[in-house]
């Protein structure tokens, strides 16, 4: 899993109301949700974001509501992955369950500026910033979570397991 993209920076405790406000939860259509992605944190984000961009945030990203609309909106907006210092647990679970790659890095956010490009090698567990000689380590993805990602999310994983059982 390799990602290269321009980054958008956000702060600590970005909650799911900021990622996708409740007023838009009368639909679960990914494109309709993407049109309002991160709107209450940065109203211009849905217009600025391009395919392959990466969200970089501080601690406790995705706290608050359990709405899966949040990772759905981020993925449908074209964001390839999210790197945060830490994730709130329901968001963390949801991201793996529906196949949005996320990574934990304690340092990245402080070393880069908005709009810079980074390269993430999920398999090697590294992040590189062009022009910065340092290679940042990302927290390894736990084996079970990796299995979910490899299978294409929780439902695909369960189907595979049920099939194996016969």
């Amino acid at each position: 899993m390799k990602f290269k993209g321009r980054i958008w920076k956000f702060g600590d405790h970005i909650d799911t109301d900021a990622i996708i406000p409740a007023r838009y939860l009368t639909t679960s259509d990914p494109q309709a949700l993407a049109a309002h992605c991160m709107e209450d944190a940065d109203p211009e984000f849905p217009k600025k974001v391009r395919k392959g961009d990466i969200i970089v945030a501080g601690v406790n990203f995705g706290c608050g509501s359990s709405r899966e609309h949040a990772p759905i909106a981020i993925k449908a907006a074209g964001v390839s992955c999210v790197v945060a210092r830490s994730f709130a647990r329901i968001f963390y679970r949801n991201a793996f369950n529906m196949g949005l790659p996320i990574f934990e890095s304690p340092e990245l956010r402080d070393r880069i500026a908005e709009g810079e490009e980074i390269e993430i090698d999920g398999d090697a567990g590294t992040i590189r910033i062009p022009g910065d000689p340092a290679v940042l380590k990302i927290q390894p993805i736990p084996p079970f979570m990796q299995e979910l990602l490899d299978d294409g999310g929780l439902m695909a994983h369960i189907k595979k397991r049920l099939k194996a059982k016969g």
């Binding site: 679970r93 949801n94 369950n97």
Partner: peptide
């Protein structure tokens, strides 16, 4: 504990969750 919709879907199918 709170979970997302996909976890709910999986639990509705299997009666289990991780």
């Amino acid at each position: 504990t709170g979970v997302g919709s996909t976890d709910l879907a999986a639990a509705m199918m299997t009666g289990q969750s991780w």
